[in-house]
C-alpha cells in the first residue's frame, strides 16, 4: 500500500516547523496558509498536526466527490488537483475534514513531496511519520478538530 503521512498528536510540540518547511519547499516563501498541512495549538495541553490523508479517512466528506468539475483526481493513491480544470470554487476547501485543502488562485493539496515528505524530515519528535496509513490516527485528529468546527 502507498505510504502516507501519519500524525501522532501526543508527540507534537506545536513548533510549526513542518508548516514553514512545507511552504518554503513548495512556494519558496513562508506563509502558513500555503502549507499543505496544519499544526493546531489549542492550549497548554493540546498541540497536534492535521494532514491530507489522500482519501484514506475522509468518507463522505470527500473533495473528489464534491468537486463540481471533477478536477480532483487520484493517481497511485495520491490525490491531486488538476490545475487546468479547477475553477477555484472552494467546494473542496469547505468539505475537507482535515482543513488541509488549500486555495490561492487554484486549489492545491499535499503531494507527499514526490515520496520524500519535507515535513517528516524536519520533525525530530516523530509527530509526523511517513508510513502505512493508520485510519485510527486520522480519526483521532478529526475528533481533536471537532470542538471548533
Amino acid at each position: 500500500m502507498t505510504k502516507m503521512l501519519v500524525p501522532y498528536p501526543e508527540n507534537c510540540t506545536g513548533c510549526r516547523m513542518c508548516e514553514m518547511v512545507c511552504s518554503i519547499y513548495h512556494e519558496g516563501k513562508v506563509n502558513h496558509a500555503d502549507a499543505r498541512l496544519q499544526v493546531h495549538r489549542r492550549n497548554v495541553k493540546l498541540d497536534f498536526p492535521s494532514v491530507c490523508t489522500h482519501c484514506v479517512s475522509c468518507g463522505d466528506e470527500c473533495c473528489m466527490l464534491r468537486c463540481p468539475v471533477e478536477a480532483i483526481k487520484k493517481k497511485d493513491g495520491v490525490v491531486y488537483v488538476d490545475q487546468e480544470l479547477c475553477t477555484a470554487c472552494g467546494e473542496c476547501v469547505e468539505v475537507c475534514p482535515f482543513g488541509v485543502m488549500r486555495m490561492e488562485e487554484k486549489a492545491f493539496n499535499c503531494d507527499l513531496c514526490g515520496g520524500h515528505p519535507t515535513c517528516v524530515n524536519f520533525c525530530p519528535m516523530h509527530a509526523l511519520m511517513y508510513e502505512e496509513p493508520k485510519p485510527e490516527r486520522y480519526e483521532q485528529v478529526k475528533r481533536l478538530l471537532a470542538p471548533e468546527e
Binding site: 510540540t13 513548533c15 516547523m17 524536519f122 520533525c123 519528535m125
Partner: peptide
C-alpha cells in the same frame, strides 16, 4: 511530564 512542548520554530523542545 505528559508531553513535550516547544516554542515556535524550535525542534529542540
Amino acid at each position: 511530564v505528559t508531553k513535550n512542548k516547544a516554542c515556535f520554530s524550535c525542534t529542540k523542545p
